[in-house]
Write a protein that binds this DNA or RNA. Sequence first.
DNA 1: CCTACCGATCGGTAGG
DNA 2: CCTACCGATCGGTAGG
Lengths: 194, 194
Amino acid sequence: MSKDKTIKRKDQITLIAQNKFREKGYRAVSMRELADHVGIEAASFYNHFNSKESILKEICFRMADEFFNSLEKVTHDEKLPDKILEKAIQSHIKVITSNTDASAVFFLDWRYLSEPVLSEFLELRRKYENIFRKIIKEGMDKGIFEKLDETFTVLTIFSSLNWVYEWYDPKGKFTPDQIAENLSKLILDGMRKQ
Amino acid sequence: MSKDKTIKRKDQITLIAQNKFREKGYRAVSMRELADHVGIEAASFYNHFNSKESILKEICFRMADEFFNSLEKVTHDEKLPDKILEKAIQSHIKVITSNTDASAVFFLDWRYLSEPVLSEFLELRRKYENIFRKIIKEGMDKGIFEKLDETFTVLTIFSSLNWVYEWYDPKGKFTPDQIAENLSKLILDGMRKQ
DNA sequence: CCTACCGATCGGTAGG
DNA sequence: CCTACCGATCGGTAGG
């Protein structure tokens, strides 16, 4: 029970930290400010986290997990490169739109991670991007996609996907599925051999 | 002559600040660190700038100027929506690739601007985006582009364009013109009516 | 989880 | 452009 309570408090802190980091940026949020929102003293944080940075680490690596778990299902289910890519985009968008605050931190504040955690993080990101790259390469090799530079294509795809946290509004006119559909169409039509 | 020297020093500071802000993020760079790189004492900054934030302001608004000036020429020269959009993308990419450090600050650190400057900045950005939006709307109305949500389309275009500063390498395999060409193709083919 | 506190560093100023 | 300095705030610790 005491264990349960601790875990809950840790989650609560993570949630509030995500929100404040997203709003002001990691470096602009102090432990005292975070403490005010949680309703404890700043010193009490250190019962749950070793440092300010370890909160950031928690947020960034949780998101990485989400992305990987979500993508894994897709690559098992589909076979055709354009279908896989479509589903992968959908899965990626789902993760972002379900965690907009954490996404902002994941995409913007990861740079404040220090070594060796920083390298771990970048390695994860590279691995994730490589899965997309492989799908794209296969589509090009099979003549489904136009032959373009792979790195360039992956970079462009991710830049449009990874901006969604910035403008997605749960109460807006697009559902996550509609965003994914439109984005897929725009991207796939641009890539497809004509 | 004394005036000339002052202006040069100010430019030198701006250049170094761009570089450090890009590398570590605005909030993570101290006046003392900047001073070390410039080769003066931290206190001496205040002969050139009123505050740390006014350096950031200088960088952000210089970039805004560059974007506007560059776009203005394009909209005067071309008439067809898809041609205008192509040229506008090229001009946008040129500005980014010619100022990668300043671009990073422009795209990431503008959020540390405080009011009322922040609102001024956002207003400029909105104006710039609206020029693109108009071009796109015209293309849709004329049946050149597929009818999609304009906001969505503009957001997606900018997200892929505005990520270029992150990976562009002057010594890499793509010239700015080639990047613009590939990006235009990917985007326009995705949008064009088929 | 709190009180009490630390050294370090921050942006900025006074005065020359 | 520098020396000398300011108050405020930072992340974090000791000890209970």
